[in-house]
């Protein structure tokens, strides 16, 4: 009688990884570049300055994607400066000293503060992130507990919780079929995000670009109606 562990191993036995060693080691160049960029993300206050310095050079380079130009929305420095204090009631104390990335919706009515760090050690890669949702009511930012958030804020909280950030992605551009373009760009250390209305969406193409405007990936987004 086989144990369940043996049954599992036998079930997966037909699966083999076929890539040859040369194809692995040849990927190394891109991997090393990503690691180098990842290293830039490590650290609290240094994070913002380093990414800003990186982008100030990278964004002035000729764009391979001539259609695209980074046009971030204005950073809300007051919100960034106060995010740690605002989020202190809902986040663990150990992440609060980290400088947050603040993702702000285009209507500037809700935001997500991401406190985190990532890097490599002898024991492997590590990352830790904590986030809190901020909403603006009557001109004042607050960070309510999740169950106290209005519906729209919950939606953006859930969506951005699911989205880590990758140092290769400098911008996300959505071209809707009706000609509207919405985009988010990383600049001055902040990844400015946009808000897509939960109402009817006409469909479009979403592209993910690196700092030089090269397309890393794209996705067709179907139309959606709320009926």
């Amino acid at each position: 009688m086989k144990s369940i562990e043996e049954v599992v191993r036998e079930g997966f036995e037909p699966l083999h990884f076929e890539s040859d060693l040369a194809s692995i080691t040849n990927r190394n160049q891109g991997s090393a570049r990503r690691r180098k960029l990842l290293a830039l993300l490590v650290g609290g206050v240094a994070l913002i300055g380093l990414i800003g310095a990186f982008l100030s050079g990278a964004l002035s380079a000729p764009s391979a994607e001539a259609m695209w130009a980074p046009v971030p929305s204005s950073p809300d420095q007051e919100l960034v400066a106060s995010a740690s204090a605002l989020c202190s009631a809902v986040l663990p104390a150990d992440v609060l000293p980290l400088a947050p990335l603040v993702l702000i919706d285009q209507r500037a009515g809700a935001a997500r503060a991401v406190f985190g760090e990532a890097g490599m050690t002898d024991q492997g890669s590590f990352q830790r992130f904590s986030t809190c949702t901020l909403i603006k009511t009557d001109g004042t930012w607050t960070a309510p507990a999740l169950d106290a958030l209005p519906f729209e804020a919950k939606t953006i909280a859930g969506a951005i919780d699911d989205a880590e950030y990758d140092v290769e992605v400098a911008a996300v551009v959505m071209d809707q079929v009706d000609g509207v373009r919405v985009q988010a760009a990383l600049a001055d250390g902040f990844f400015h995000f946009w808000w897509i209305s939960p109402d009817d969406f006409p469909g479009g193409t979403m592209r993910f670009l690196d700092a030089r405007g090269r397309v890393l990936d794209s996705a067709e987004v179907p139309a959606r109606t709320t009926g």
Partner: peptide, 10 residues
């Protein structure tokens, strides 16, 4: 960028 795809269908 894999995760970001999921932002659209909120």
């Amino acid at each position: 960028w894999r995760k970001l795809r999921r932002l659209v269908p909120m």
